[in-house]
């Protein structure tokens, strides 16, 4: 079976700064990968390289068996590898509905089809279904600029998934969200993505979120992956505890047994 994503010997340096060094990872269909690491560890650089935003200095990136090195983000997107953003990238002056219909309009473009009206009843129905899937239908007619942060995050991800991607990379989906809202938000996102059989990778700083939603963890440190292991194992890894999550962090599954 081919992997969804296979990265070999990925390198990136900005002048003298090494942002990625010998990154070797694979992702299989249906997995949920959590990317952890301190600021500047190379997490977003990795996402930027895989989605074509930054050219790697060396190495290979294969998506569904084909190389995506040298492609533009739009080409990678069309193949079915999409991403969301730490800072939601939406059309601020428009309503939620108009944001979504624009997203569908662009995603479903076909040559001369671009000259047809954007608003069709079928497309509007797809927009409403997507808004419902991400539970933001109540904000349908609100301006994107007036949305609470959590809703805007959901809108960003809803727009990123209009193509039903095979693999989606979420860049810090819960950053800027209050602690109480984080789990509810991730529940909505993960449920929506599973409905579409999308393989998920996300960057996350909150280890409770990682433990709850992630199968496998990649821990980044100074441009390298210092640990690639199932979540429970990674939480106990010495290097991960020293360089990423801190010694004082107690994984939930251990805490439970300690209290017993």
């Amino acid at each position: 079976m081919t992997h969804v994503l296979e990265v070999r010997d990925l390198q990136k340096s900005f002048g003298g700064v090494i942002a990625a060094h010998n990154i070797n990872v694979t992702v299989d269909t249906g997995e949920t990968i959590g990317i952890i690491g301190a600021n500047g560890a190379g997490k977003t650089t990795f996402v930027n390289m895989v989605t074509g935003y930054l050219p790697p200095s060396g190495g290979t990136i294969e998506f569904l068996g084909g190389s995506v090195v040298g492609m533009h983000p739009r080409e990678v997107t069309r193949l079915g590898l999409c991403r969301s953003f730490q800072v939601p990238q939406v059309f601020l002056s428009d309503s939620v509905f108009d944001n979504m219909i624009m997203a569908y309009g662009i995603a479903e473009r076909t040559g001369l089809g671009l000259f047809t009206p954007i608003h069709t009843d079928e497309r509007a129905a797809r927009v409403d279904a997507q808004l419902k899937r991400y539970q933001i239908e109540d904000y349908r007619d609100a301006a994107a600029s007036a949305l609470p942060q959590g809703i805007r995050k959901l809108l960003d991800i809803a727009m990123a998934t209009v193509r039903n991607p095979k693999l989606i990379m979420l860049d810090e989906p819960t950053s800027g969200i209050s602690v109480e809202e984080k789990f509810g938000l991730m529940d909505i996102i993960m449920q929506a993505l599973r409905e579409e059989d999308t393989t998920v990778m996300f960057i996350e700083h909150d280890m409770e979120i990682v433990e709850r939603f992630v199968d496998r963890v990649w821990a980044f440190y100074q441009g390298e992956i210092i640990c690639d292991a199932p979540t429970a194992e990674a939480m106990m890894d010495e290097k991960v505890r020293e360089f990423v999550i801190g010694q004082e962090y107690h994984p939930a599954h251990l805490e439970g047994s300690a209290n017993a």
């Binding site: 533009h72 739009r74 997107t77 939406v90 059309f91 662009i106 473009r109 209009v162």
Partner: peptide, 13 residues
């Protein structure tokens, strides 16, 4: 006008 990055990541130049 609003967001070129989003347009790019929707698959259009």
């Amino acid at each position: 006008r609003e967001n070129e990055i989003r347009v790019e990541y929707l698959g259009y130049s």
